[in-house]
Structures are given as structure tokens and as C-alpha cells.
Design a protein around this nucleic acid. Structure first.
Lengths: 262, 262
DNA sequence: CAATAACATCTAACATGTTACATACCGACT
DNA sequence: AGTCGGTATGTAACATGTTAGATGTTATTG
């Protein structure tokens, strides 16, 4: 469902209204599980606020909503056909995640890029992923390795056809695979949340510098290190990757200072 | 101000009403900084939802609110003298943090202890803190080391006088010090959030088994390893500490299964 | 008596009205 | 002309009313 309705001030959003019980048909996204006494792996509750959250997050990470841009809650609510409540809830969550900045009584803005926060996010990401890799390496999982390689293969195809979106989805999927391979419940969600800043920056840089090929090579080096169960080398490769990103960020800041907050 | 007003169903909460603009006096907790164009280190906006969040979080981590216990939003709102909105906002944030479980259209409960989630939280905590230690060690900070030792000294005093609360505050403060020493903006907040599960469990176990002395020894071993710039040993010590905790958790689960969810 | 369907109840989710505050603008006063 | 103070405006924060759905209970039916 989810019809695109477009688009004021370069915002591309969707209409949630259609997923309501307006017709007698099933509404796909509204399924909820009442697993009160079950295992509870994050209740599959797709409430309106969850949907709004996903839509806004996607829009921010893909830079459809540019850093620094104002977010009119009321406008968003109107565009999505919901009230202000679920929009506020979604935005609060995004603020916790560092993707929006809320100034009390004043306004809400897509978070600008703060170099020091990005540095911290990088640190967290490396810490979590190298630890995950270390753990994965210890338990030697050939199927996981196969999935990594399949993913890299797909990345190569996407890079060849210069398909940014596809490439990026695969990139994120690879990180998810690495987290999953560690076999820890909920680790992927935590890592994904902490990575959101980085994901946004990387996608921005990818568009900006179009260095998919180099990125791919870095990914391959990391996976290769994992295959050799060499967590230290994997970590070192990541560090190098990050240093590279730091340089590019400085370039970007010179050319597009309006995206930055520091 | 925050007067204690007490307490239905073993809940100890506070009255926020008094911090409103009912008198002409200043209201301490209400200060906000309008630093729209400033460095923005988390706007010092102490809104009602922030206060409710802090109060509830404290209550949950200290187990004043027991795992599995129902949280009546409306009741909490009434007790705190606020409406349901800031309470809901606070609870949403706590749900993100994994401290409460929300079942749509059904109820909100203090999160039970899920062994697999605790395992993940431990993993994240170790990953972040050993990385922080590694970074701290690299940049050799004698003042930080002094602060660590002062903290340990205070912990020793608290342990001797068997002051749980004080001991625990110092314990958390030590972890904050370690994070700060890494010199990364916002790392402490991230680590603190990811640690909340663990903090709750540890405090529970501390009350339960009263092993402050042993815990203190473990802390001393960790700091000693840091002083020697031996991140690997620090990590190993933490791992041992965690294994210990895992055993105690299994005991606790047998004696008090109602606290657990898995 | 067991299974099931109608129903009562309770709560989160959602909608919407109201308030307080940050900011910008504008005019008066020095 | 520049500073200060009042005022207008817009938004998040807060309050409260309404809806939908999950659950437990009771009536009903085989």
C-alpha cells in the first residue's frame, strides 16, 4: 500500500491513511502479535509511530531530508495522514538516536553533522564490530562466511552497475550479517542504532565521491581478515577505512559547510 | 525540591508539581539553554518528560520497581502530578532502553530479566569499555588514573560501612570515569544507556549476595590493569567478572524465577 | 462438561485542544 | 544610531478526550 503522495519542500513521504481499516481488506502492516507470555523478541507491533519512525529514519539516512533542515511536525502529520502524536513519538526516538535535534519550544531539525559525534560513533561501531568479529572467528561459522561472500558478490554487481541504493543496502546488510554471526540476541538492533549516524555520512560520501569500488575493496579486505580469523587485522582494516572517511569528511565540510554543526 | 509523597503498591515516587511555576521563585530544575547555534552538547532542557524518565529509570534500576511489575501510566501521572503525555514519553524511552516492556493495548511492565539479553548487554559493555580502556591507555592520562584510584578508595570506605547505595553510585561513577577518560564526546551517555540492564542486575545481585568486597577486588584488578596499560588483561578481568555474574544470575533465577522472562 | 461466542473491562494508541516559552520584530528611549 | 523593552508569532511541551484492540469472564450451545 503506502502510496507516495509527495512532496513539499523536497520532502518525499508516504500516506499511511491507506493502511487504515477504511476498506474491509487486510491491512498488511497492522499485524500485531499478543505474545504476552511468549519469548518476546520485540513484539511485532507495527503501530503508526513505528511506521512514521521508519519512514522518517529512511528519509534522513538517505539525505532526502538534508542535515539542518527543519521538520514541521504538523506538516509531516498532515502528509502522512496521522495526528501529531505518533509523529512526535517517532521524532523523540530519532532524537535519542541522534538523527534529529529538538530545540524546546523552538523547532525540530534534521541533525547536522558534528565531527566529534561522528568520531564517537565510529569508535563505538569499530568496538562493537571488531568484538563481534572476534566472537564469530572463535566459533568458526562457515555458513556465515558464505553469506558474507555472497553479499560481497552482490556488492560487486551493484558497484559495476553503479547502483548506489542497492550497494548501500548491501553494505548495511553486510554489517547486519556480521552482527548476527556473533549469535547474540538483539546485538544487531543495538549496532544498527549506534551506526545510524555513520550510515548517513557514508551514504552521503558515497554519492559525493562515488568511490564504491574503493569501498568494496575495503569490505573485501575486512571479510578476508575474518575468514583468516584474524580479528586484529580486521580491526586494523576498519581503522584505516575510518581514517579515510575522516579525510573525506573534512573535504565535504569545506565544500558544504551548511551540513555541519561544528 | 521534589518532595517525596509516597507510595502506592510499593512505588516510591516524587511530586513534580512543586517545580512548576506556582510560586514566583526560580525553579531550579527548569533551566533550559537556548543554544541553537552553540556547541549543543545535549541541550540542558529539563522538561517534565526528562524528569519523569529519570525518576522512573532510577526506580527501575534500583529495583524499587521490581521486574515484571505493572506500570500504570495513569497512576504514575497522578502520583507525579503531571499528565499522561510526559509519562508516556518517558516510558517509550525506557522501552527503547530495554527497561520496560510495552504490550500494545494491554499494559506496560518493568522489564523482566532475559538471560540472553543480559548476555548481549554484557558483550556490548565489555566491547565498549575495553575499547575505551585501550584508547585511554594509549594516551596515558595520569589525572584520570588518579580519579580512578580516588574512586576505588571511596568504594572501599563504602564497602566497609556496608553502604549499598553509595557503593553502587561509585561503581557507576567509575565506569563513567573510564568512558570519559577516552576523550570521546557522548561516549559516556551511550555506554551508560547500554549498561542500564547490567546496572540493574548488578545492583540486584549486590543486595542479594552482598559481595561488595569481592566486587571491589575485581574493580581494583581492572584499574590495576589499566594502570599497566594492559588492555588485554583488563578485558580478561572483566570477562572473569562477567562469568562470575552469570553464575550468580543462575542462582537468582532458581530462587526468584518471577523476576525472569526466559 | 467442554468449547465457543458475546460481552465487559482495561490499557495503550491515537487525536486534538491548550500552554508556555524561545525567538524575532518593532518601536521607544538614551 | 544603538540598546532596551514590549509584543507578536510559532513551535514544542503538556493536558485531556477518544478509539481500538487485547484479555478475561460469562453466557450459550453442542
Amino acid at each position: 500500500m503506502l502510496d507516495v503522495i509527495g512532496a513539499e519542500s523536497n520532502i518525499l513521504l508516504y500516506d499511511l491513511q491507506t493502511s487504515r481499516r477504511s476498506d474491509s481488506g487486510s491491512y498488511e502492516l497492522q499485524l500485531r502479535l499478543p505474545n504476552r507470555d511468549f519469548k518476546e523478541q520485540k513484539v511485532v507491533s507495527v503501530t503508526r509511530k513505528d511506521q512514521v519512525y521508519s519512514i522518517l529514519r529512511q528519509a534522513i539516512i538517505s539525505s532526502q531530508l538534508a542535515p539542518g533542515e527543519a521538520i514541521r511536525k504538523e506538516l509531516v502529520a498532515a502528509q502522512l495522514g496521522v495526528s501529531r502524536t505518533p509523529v512526535s513519538d517517532a521524532i523523540n526516538r530519532l532524537a535519542d538516536e541522534g538523527l534529529v535535534e529538538i530545540y524546546p519550544q523552538t523547532g525540530t531539525f534534521v541533525a547536522r553533522l558534528w565531527l566529534d559525534k561522528i568520531e564517537t560513533a565510529q569508535f563505538v561501531r569499530v568496538a562493537l564490530e571488531t568484538a563481534a568479529i572476534r566472537r564469530t572467528a572463535e566459533r568458526a561459522n562457515p555458513e556465515a562466511l558464505g553469506r558474507f561472500r555472497q553479499n560481497l558478490e552482490d556488492q560487486r554487481k551493484a558497484a559495476n552497475s553503479r547502483d548506489f541504493e542497492q550497494f548501500y543496502e548491501l553494505d548495511e546488510a553486510l554489517h547486519d550479517l556480521i552482527c548476527d554471526a556473533a549469535g547474540l540476541v538483539g546485538l544487531r538492533e543495538i549496532a544498527s542504532k549506534e551506526r545510524s549516524q555513520i550510515d548517513r555520512v557514508r551514504r552521503l560520501l558515497l554519492h559525493y565521491e562515488a568511490r564504491m569500488v574503493e569501498t568494496l575493496a575495503e569490505h573485501e579486505a575486512i571479510i578476508s581478515a575474518i575468514a583468516d580469523k584474524d580479528a586484529d587485522r580486521a580491526a586494523a582494516t576498519m581503522e584505516a577505512h575510518i581514517a579515510q572517511m575522516g579525510k573525506m569528511l573534512l573535504h565535504l565540510k569545506i565544500k558544504r559547510p551548511e551540513l555541519f554543526g561544528s
